[in-house]
């Protein structure tokens, strides 16, 4: 696996983390459009993108768990590292649970009910907030404490 990494990358985590952020935000945008203007194709797209976001969050979580013990963290960055790790856990659990709920809702056709679609969209926004918080802490680790900037 390490041979596949570019020279500058200390581990796979920085290459993977952008996927759950981008995919989840894209999914909520499509979700918003699908609530405003319901469309079967759009609903399937939303479901697919949320599912892909959850899978990429799992990959980000696994690579992060490996990376945290491989990089040098200055003492003052330890609290942020711990919080980043905690929020990574919460976000992963939320994304996986949410993707499962969306699949069930699609299968049971609950997503035809307007109130359900609005509630699901609101939950999607909460997911966006969670991934933003995790990303914010990760960015602080890199840009404030220099974690992972040297191989």
């Amino acid at each position: 696996m390490e041979q596949l990494l570019p020279d500058w990358a200390p581990n796979a985590h920085p290459l993977i983390i952008h996927f759950p952020i981008a995919l989840w935000l894209l999914a909520t945008l499509f979700d918003l459009l699908s609530v405003i203007k319901p469309d079967n194709w759009l609903k399937k797209t939303v479901l697919s993108v949320y599912s892909l976001a959850a899978l990429s969050a799992l990959a980000a979580f696994l690579s992060g768990s490996q990376a945290i013990d491989e990089v040098a963290i200055p003492f003052q960055g330890e609290v942020t590292a711990g919080k980043h790790s905690d929020w990574g856990h919460y976000t992963l659990y939320f994304f996986i649970s949410y993707a499962i709920i969306r699949l069930i809702a699609f299968w049971k056709r609950w997503d035809k009910i307007k109130l359900v679609t609005i509630l699901l969209l609101l939950l999607g926004f909460i997911g966006s907030g969670m991934v933003a918080k995790t990303a914010d802490l990760g960015g602080k680790l890199v840009y404030k404490y220099g974690v992972g900037t040297k191989k």
Partner: peptide, 9 residues
């Protein structure tokens, strides 16, 4: 060693 919240190393 570091003890940060619930994380210990």
């Amino acid at each position: 060693l570091s003890a940060a919240g619930t994380h210990f190393k």
